[in-house]
Design a protein around this nucleic acid. Structure first.
Lengths: 203, 203
DNA sequence: GGCTTTCTGTATCAATCATTACAAAAAGGA
DNA sequence: TCCTTTTTGTAATGATTGATACAGAAAGCC
């Protein structure tokens, strides 16, 4: 049961993945429509028919990134036995992903669109919400740690979550600057050296 | 002894400072010549006569930023009695600066030009070198700490320097996302909770 | 007062930006 | 086979990009 009109001549998913790589490497503003259509191997009318606009394509690319790359980074959070192990693995997967030689270094959600008014439906605002979601996600894992007796009730969980997400953000910049997997993995371990101090009742 | 021709009708330093604020807030790529000339209150020929090009203006703006904002952040490193206090103050000044309500949030050196080929004379490469300089600066302060007996000789100083610079990088993103001074200051303190673990001989 | 030098404002340059008309092409349904 | 529907490639849209040509204005020097 194929649709009515002329069938699409390109693979939408494959084209979206190539577009994601362009946005990942160049960022939303710096990536031009010419860059995108060349990488996707289609003409601009096909792009607009399939994705609506450059911003719409970016939104789809961010969702693909989250489901693909992002999923790998945060997958350990729910499965790890403790919040501590979960966050340690969260940072370690970040180090691995951000220095993978087969893809752009650093995180697309962090580096993809930093400038702009941050409006709700803008690329900048879109990524900002994703980053804030990550803080909430870490915080929820920490709350589970409290419920399970791993962490004391008096610990400032929001602070701990913000600290580790801030470290993760910084790893994107450091990765772009040429840091190796070994260096970034050490940074991840270094951040975990703060765990005992952060989860002690008094800071 | 004034120069020969028609005197310049605008204050070069004041115009450069306004340009710096535009680059700081919008980034090199997103800041247009129209944005710059409007903020500097001059016409483009005057801008090109005084700064050569958009990239030349950016370079001058980055130097101004380093001498003004950057100096305040790193001023405590040499004056503090210990490396630990110096880095703690380094992060605390970062938190204060990055959330100052009178200026753009986050660091211009981190957020100003992330995309591009990173060539030596490009805006992107220029900022990358500044960031790497910061790592070296922290490392040198740590080396002094070793010489003065504060830190054991077996500590991986490069790792410690990279970790704290990475935290500082992340604070720029978190500040752009709306984090308050209080939150960022707590993150700075959280990073210092890792100090004892990092400067213990075995990690 | 001329001459040279430098700056200022207007107006414009070619190039690139994201986006879209338009007509031919390729499919299903009648 | 004709009609409808959707996609395709070509070509072009107006707007904006960074950067200048040009003529007049304002200074020092002779």
């Amino acid at each position: 049961m194929s649709p009515k009109g002329r069938p699409r001549a390109f693979d939408r998913d494959a084209a979206l993945e190539r577009a994601m790589l362009v946005f990942w490497q160049k960022g939303y503003d710096t990536a031009s429509m010419a860059d995108l259509t060349e990488a996707m191997q289609i003409n601009s009318p096909s792009l607009y028919a399939a994705f609506g606009s450059k911003a719409g394509l970016f939104k789809a690319a961010v969702e693909l990134y989250s489901n693909q790359v992002g999923q790998r980074i945060k997958s350990a959070l729910p499965t790890a036995a403790t919040a501590r192990e979960g966050i340690a693995e969260f940072l370690m997967q970040t180090a691995i992903t951000h220095t993978d030689p087969n893809q752009p270094h650093g995180c697309m959600v962090v580096l993809g669109a930093l400038h702009g008014d941050g409006g709700a439906d803008t690329p900048c605002g879109l990524l900002r919400e994703r980053r804030l979601d990550n803080v909430a996600m870490l915080r929820e894992r920490l709350e589970r740690g409290v419920r399970e007796g791993e962490i004391s009730q008096s610990v400032d969980l929001q602070l701990v979550a913000e600290f580790y997400v801030t470290v993760q953000h910084g790893m994107s910049i450091t990765a772009r600057d040429g840091s190796t997997l070994d260096q970034l993995a050490k940074t991840a371990k270094a951040a975990m050296a703060a765990w005992d101090g952060l989860t002690a009742n008094a800071l």
